[in-house]
């Protein structure tokens, strides 16, 4: 069961994002903070006359907020709202076959929630991500 994946690096790890979840890839402009929102919500940004909520992946993974001013993001839509997921870097799109996470493989805290499987690319295994897992739900955020 092969699928198309966008190769990316998040928090210094190679990951694969199913292209079905990716609406576009963009370099963000100025990010406007949204005070009091959960920490992984970096703020709001305007993309083509639309206001998009920016998600800081490193904070979402439980890592300290990156010193780099990351601007590259993957746009995804969840429940009618658009989100920009910040990434370190983006690579090409590959058609790969996903395998389930090996049993016994215990992932680090932040990764456990968003990983759905493993693909192998260029001899390197990488996690398949479900971007929506990073979107803080309304109930949890309060």
């Amino acid at each position: 069961m092969s699928e198309q994946y966008l190769m990316a690096r998040i928090a210094d790890r190679p990951v694969a994002i199913p292209t079905a979840q990716v609406e576009s890839v963009i370099d963000l402009g100025d990010i406007l903070p949204a005070p009091l929102a959960p920490p992984q919500v970096r703020g709001l940004v305007a993309i083509r006359s639309r206001v998009v909520t920016v998600i800081d992946t490193e904070v979402a993974l439980g890592l300290p907020r990156s010193v780099h001013d990351r601007r590259r993001a993957v746009i995804t839509a969840v429940d009618g709202h658009h989100y920009a997921i910040l990434v370190e870097s983006l690579d090409e799109v590959e058609t790969l076959v996903a395998q389930p996470l090996s049993s016994g493989l215990v992932l680090g805290d932040g990764w456990r929630d968003c990983a759905t499987g493993i693909v192998e690319h260029g001899g390197e295994p990488m996690l398949v991500l479900d971007l929506s897992a990073w979107i803080p739900a309304a109930a949890l955020a309060a």
């Binding site: 909520t53 989100y83 739900a137």
Partner: peptide
């Protein structure tokens, strides 16, 4: 706004 932002209540 996104649910996470609305959930702040303000």
């Amino acid at each position: 706004a996104a649910p996470a932002v609305m959930a702040t209540g303000v």
